[in-house]
Design a protein around this nucleic acid. Structure first.
Ligand SMILES: [Zn+2]
Ligand SMILES: [Zn+2]
Length: 773
DNA sequence: AGCACGCCGACT
DNA sequence: GTCGGCGTGCTC
């Protein structure tokens, strides 16, 4: 067969596929007939023809409209609907699939589940360089290895040339480490032998002597220099957890593990990471790979170091801070099996693995796993789907599991593994509610709180204060007439910032100078109203002027490296006040902090979203875990105007899990997730009416096709209707079971009258929305 | 998404 | 008379 028909998906919002022809004789990538060779048939797919095995997953360069695009082959159809005169030839880019079968299956599953165009999903899963059609080759660098003569030469001969000796020592060490099953190669990347611009001279001299030679090889991954650190002794609970996971990763028939989902619910400091590490060791020892997902900011150098220090095999990282080249390199290492452990944030769930063995999702409750625009997937949920497809176990770990996950554990879809003891025997911090209704607040602090802060500082310990409001004050008001600084583009007040001295809208990034006089009454009496982190910082510095105050929020950490610097200062351990937004609550441990204050509990609790309580409970529990480790007992104080609120009381008295179980009962009564399922349709346009006109026909259509099995709310104006000069409407769909919701949405999206989103009328679909606005 | 084509208002 | 606004439709 000379002209193979291929079905291709292209990036972009197009919901269709496109068929092309492939010239199997002339395509330069195929030079010869690998298509027909039986040896190309993969082991796991005996039913497929050799063609399918070989071509599916390869990228092509395809003529499209007036230009060319990168596409991915997803099928080899026998015939096509496309009229023959339109059918064009595409050219192969890859000789090896850029995407494994199972990964492509995951993408297509996700595209279907989230109702997002498949081509877009597929390309989302690829590193940017591959999206652009760059070759999927390992970047080659120069490596050095010993020649046969070089292996025999005594190091004494060269001991006078210090640099040369170092090189020879490194290469000889490598030779001695040689083990049959070890992945350690016998060559060293020149970049490692000659760090940061040192001379090549020693290398050339050794080459001249005939002791070493250079070869081109894929660039080195960072490998640990030291012997791996040893495993820690496990508690009984930890051991049980590790054994349970191992039971699924180890199996008689070597090749295949088993799917199983575990919820590892471990209080802060109970050693979840050690459980991960030991479970991974089992997997890596079988030559398989582990994928570890971490929250956006959870990838601290300490955590990474801990993983790197544990394994002889390469540990690669995939996060948003990498350059395109570095990201491709890590992705390739995962894909070709060089990397044994892959650690990454949300999008790393799409990393291909040569031989997957285990998937871990750390801090599985974290919101950063849900993408909030474009392709709105949830990486934790996809992790479970992927684990099932790859037939490997998945471990979801958290001190404060999402209610969805707890519900899955309650209903035996997940196996619950509990770690109830803090490893270091540290005492549970005490939690106190401070009633701020009847007392005078100064700098947002009740007298009791101020008192506690002072005492903590005086005993040389650190204080951590949470205030989830950036800037100096959330509002600027005219004292005389009540005028408020409003954002011209949003239905929101502009926040006052000190540095630079500006009004700033947090919703659209609008910035402007402060008016010197009130625009309405010309009064000069403009007053900041409310408390933000900048203002709190100032006032704390005055009140507690013997101690430093460190502010950690998006504004104070904007510059690269400044967060690290602040964290270093904190870890130096001097008594001080740390004050910050949510940023501080995640991932960091502050052993010297013994007092934690949460200043605006109520704001979070009554925000209208049904998940607000869950978010707050998680925050409180997470920060409580940060306070006091070792011998110092911690204390957590919550300021509230509703201290008698039963939810709040329950959380403090009984802890997260029993709070969560009660909350689950409430959700069940109210038929809220996880006892029902939601989809949110959002639309925005230049005026409120057009936005509504996008959603109204959708609402009508859904009403018709659902025959009462769906509940609809809307279309309604979003809680903040105008944002960045666009008016926003939303339509919330709720159903008892997933299937009818999914079907209804699929039918809706198939309606011919439905026009795709464009720059004028934007709309989007969000399955399992995280926020209801 | 891009990109062309095409049809109306307002400018040298 | 043209220039350019963006609505509409197509891309294998
Ligand atoms: Zn005024
Ligand atoms: Zn704004």
């Amino acid at each position: 067969m000379k002209h193979q028909l291929i079905r291709v998906l292209l990036p972009g919002p197009l919901r269709q596929h496109f068929d092309y022809l492939l010239d199997t004789q002339l395509d330069p990538v195929l030079n010869g007939d690998p298509l027909l060779s039986a040896s190309q048939a993969s082991i796991d797919d005996s039913a497929a023809t050799p063609h399918q095995v070989k071509l599916i997953g390869l990228r092509v360069l395809a003529p499209f409209g007036r230009g060319k695009r990168t596409g991915i082959i997803t099928a080899l159809p026998d015939s096509t609907d496309c009229p023959p005169e339109k059918l064009k030839f595409a050219q192969l880019i890859d000789s090896q699939p850029a995407m494994t079968d199972s990964l492509q299956r995951l993408c297509l599953w996700a595209a279907n589940y989230y109702h997002h165009p498949a081509g877009d999903v597929l390309f989302h899963a690829l590193p940017i360089l591959l999206r652009k059609g760059q070759p999927n080759q390992l970047p080659q660098t120069i490596h050095w290895q010993l020649t046969e003569r070089g292996k025999k030469v005594s190091l004494n001969v060269v001991k006078r040339a210090k640099k040369q000796l170092e090189v020879m020592q490194q290469l000889h060490n490598l030779m001695q480490q040689e083990q049959p099953d070890s992945p350690v190669s016998q060559t060293i990347d020149e970049q490692l032998l000659r760090p940061a611009g040192q001379s090549r001279q020693p290398l050339l001299a050794l080459e001249e002597k005939g002791w070493i030679e250079s070869i081109e090889r894929p660039a080195a991954l960072d490998l640990p220099e030291e012997a791996p650190s040893s495993a820690l002794t496990l508690s009984e609970e930890q051991q049980f957890a590790v054994d349970s996971i191992n039971a699924k990763t180890q199996s008689e028939d070597k090749d295949k593990g088993h799917f199983a989902a575990f919820l590892l619910e471990g209080v802060t400091g109970s050693g979840k990471t050690e459980v991960y590490l030991q479970a991974i060791e089992t997997v890596v020892a079988q030559g398989k790979q582990a994928l570890v997902l971490v929250p956006e900011i959870g990838l601290t150098p300490q955590t990474l170091q801990r993983f790197r220090a544990r394994f002889r095999q390469p540990v690669v990282v995939l996060h948003s801070g990498l350059t395109d080249t570095a990201r491709l390199r890590a992705w390739q290492a995962a894909s070709n099996g060089e990397a044994a452990v892959i650690i990454g944030t949300r999008s790393a769930i799409f990393t291909p693995m040569q031989s997957p063995g285990l998937i871990i999702v750390d801090e599985e409750h974290d919101n950063s796993y849900k993408q909030m625009e474009g392709f709105r997937y949830h990486a934790r949920d996809l992790a479970v789907v992927r684990a099932r497809m790859e037939k490997v176990p998945v471990v979801l770990g958290s001190a404060t599991p999402a209610l969805e996950s707890l519900h899955n554990a309650n209903t035996d879809r997940y196996q619950l593994l509990k770690l109830t003891h803090r490893a270091s025997d540290a005492k549970e911090p005490t939690k106190i509610l401070l009633d701020i209704r009847s007392c005078h607040l100064n700098a947002g602090l009740s007298p009791t709180m101020r008192d506690k802060i002072r005492r903590t500082l005086e005993s040389n310990q650190q204080v951590l204060l949470f205030l989830n409001r950036r800037g100096f004050s959330p509002v600027l008001m005219c004292h005389d007439c009540g005028w408020l600084a409003q954002c011209p583009s949003c239905d929101a007040k502009m926040a006052l910032h000190q540095n630079p001295h500006r009004l700033h809208c947090h919703h659209c990034d609008n910035q402007r100078r402060l008016p010197e006089t009130c625009p309405d009454c010309k009064s000069e009496n403009m007053v900041p109203v409310g408390l933000g982190t900048e203002r709190l910082e100032q006032e704390l510095a005055q009140t507690f002027d013997d101690w430093p105050v460190l502010r950690v929020d998006r504004d104070s950490t904007r510059k690269k490296g400044s967060l690290d610097k602040i964290l270093q200062q904190i870890n130096a351990g001097e008594p001080m006040i740390l004050l910050g937004t949510q940023m501080l609550a995640k991932g960091h441990h502050f052993p010297k902090v013994t007092l934690v204050g949460i200043l605006d509990v109520d704001g979070a609790f009554f925000s209208g979203d049904f998940r607000a309580g869950e978010k707050l409970a998680q925050l409180v529990t997470q920060v409580a875990g940060r306070a006091g480790r070792g011998e110092l007992a911690g204390e957590v104080c919550l300021q509230s105007r509703q201290p008698e609120h039963p939810q709040l009381q329950g959380l403090l008295k009984q802890g997260y899990n029993s709070w969560a179980q009660q909350e689950l009962e409430l959700r069940e009564q109210a038929l809220l997730p996880p006892f029902s399922h939601m989809a949110m349709l959002r639309a925005e346009a230049i005026n409120a009416d057009s936005a509504k006109k996008i959603l109204q026909p959708m609402a009508d259509c859904l009403k018709q096709i659902s025959s009462g099995s769906l509940m609809q709310m809307g279309p309604l104006a979003a809680p903040m209707e105008k944002r960045a000069n666009r008016y926003r409407q939303q339509l919330l769909i709720q159903a008892d079971d997933r299937r009818s919701l999914h079907q209804a949405m699929a039918i809706l999206l198939n309606q011919p009258w439905l026009q795709p989103a464009n720059s004028r009328y934007r709309w989007s679909i969000d399955i399992d929305p995280q926020d209801l606005y």
